[in-house]
Design a protein around this nucleic acid. Sequence first.
DNA 1: CGCTTAGTTGAGTTCGTTCAACGACTGTGG
DNA 2: CCACAGTCGTTGAACGAACTCAACTAAGCG
Lengths: 250, 250
Amino acid sequence: MATSRPTHSFKTPCEQCPLRPLPHFREFTGDELGFISKFKKGELAADAGATILVEGAHSAHLFTVLTGWGFRYKALEDGRRQILNYIMPGDLIGLQGTIMGEMQHSIEALSPVSLCVFERDKLMTLYNKHPSLAFDITWMAAQEERMLDEHLLSIGRRTALERAAYLIAFLYQRGKQLNLFNGHSAIPITQQHIADTLGLSIVHTNKTLKKLAARKLIRWQERACEVLDGETLAKIAGWDGLDDKVRPFL
Amino acid sequence: MATSRPTHSFKTPCEQCPLRPLPHFREFTGDELGFISKFKKGELAADAGATILVEGAHSAHLFTVLTGWGFRYKALEDGRRQILNYIMPGDLIGLQGTIMGEMQHSIEALSPVSLCVFERDKLMTLYNKHPSLAFDITWMAAQEERMLDEHLLSIGRRTALERAAYLIAFLYQRGKQLNLFNGHSAIPITQQHIADTLGLSIVHTNKTLKKLAARKLIRWQERACEVLDGETLAKIAGWDGLDDKVRPFL
DNA sequence: CGCTTAGTTGAGTTCGTTCAACGACTGTGG
DNA sequence: CCACAGTCGTTGAACGAACTCAACTAAGCG
């Protein structure tokens, strides 16, 4: 399995961050931007399939996803795996490990991923000197909590078809907010990942996805899911969708 | 259904908070305590069964649970309900609503509950003047995220018996940390609540609980679950248990 | 060329569901 | 005081959703 590797060669200055111009993210003051720039230590690149963070590790760092898709998961001792949520550009990862000492979940890259690395030691400085950014971190933690609430509702109470529809609609909407699709709306994921997210077996996941495909809501590609009709997917799940407010990130 | 009502008659001073002496909670500086005392606006009492916060409401306040048990939940349009997590003394609630405008879940009391009410408007002051408390709020959000991760793993990947064992062991450990049991370790919950937490039907939940009772791990009471052997429950679920570090609260 | 990974499909089994009925207990109104 | 309804827990029977097992295609790679 491929592992992540540091990229010393290049550090995108925060002032030229490709994410900031997106309408989805809030504007920052020069002061905030200046601090974040100093807070940022470097960049890290991970290949598709690489483990970015591993459960049990005493993570030294905090990361923001710059590009790529990944997922957080936990596993039982006998290998049963549950995907908890997906990570995309702008998402903060490693907060649990930074704040509470030890990671309780692992993170793996779905596509090639690049990350901004922040210095854990400067986190207290951030809280002391930049309360607006501290508030942003809390905002992001609350947002993550909200997504987990939705996922829990989905796994606990929706049928297999509804669950699959919800998950794909969710990933589709998130991807669209971040401008991750150019024309073809393909989510880089295998059916095994979907199964591990929905709490279903691979076989049943496959049969469920076929039903969605038969309705022309999705189309399955090499190793990706193309979304043809996100609205109907959301409707099948009885899901309201994400709110479109501008959000912070580091 | 009973509703919550304000208690104007009495406001416990934070300096005499019954929770602070517990070894489970971290010590606070006089400065921090002074601010929290000013931050606290009053108290609120809710009867068992009362709805404390409702999905969709623009919550004006932030609360800390002083006494009692409750739960957070979400429901689908057709009534299917999923319990997301339980609330106990020291837990902060209403953060999502305060930070992001609108509550996305409801909260209901399991037993009579009393709450400290904080002024939402002073939250920015907290972030500006008391970074250590701001950090505490982030800590609590991250902790909630961690619990949701565990629940997700449980519902997604554990069998009915393992799920039930995990849930009861979890509630038992939390209750014990907070000194909520005096001799008899009874969790004030109905089988319907357990079913709505585990994502199972009431009938199958009942049959599953009977298996645990047959093994003398639990005993079912009037409207509560008495835990006889929390260790074995955790072992059945393959669950490591909560960490016992001291934690913050407001 | 064999080897691995991802996706597909059918057959039989198991786990959890729904439907239904019943006992115990509580509170309410006549 | 009793009759009645409501909640909570319990149990059996029949059904269905999702699982495991197994076999097979197609694509990618050393």
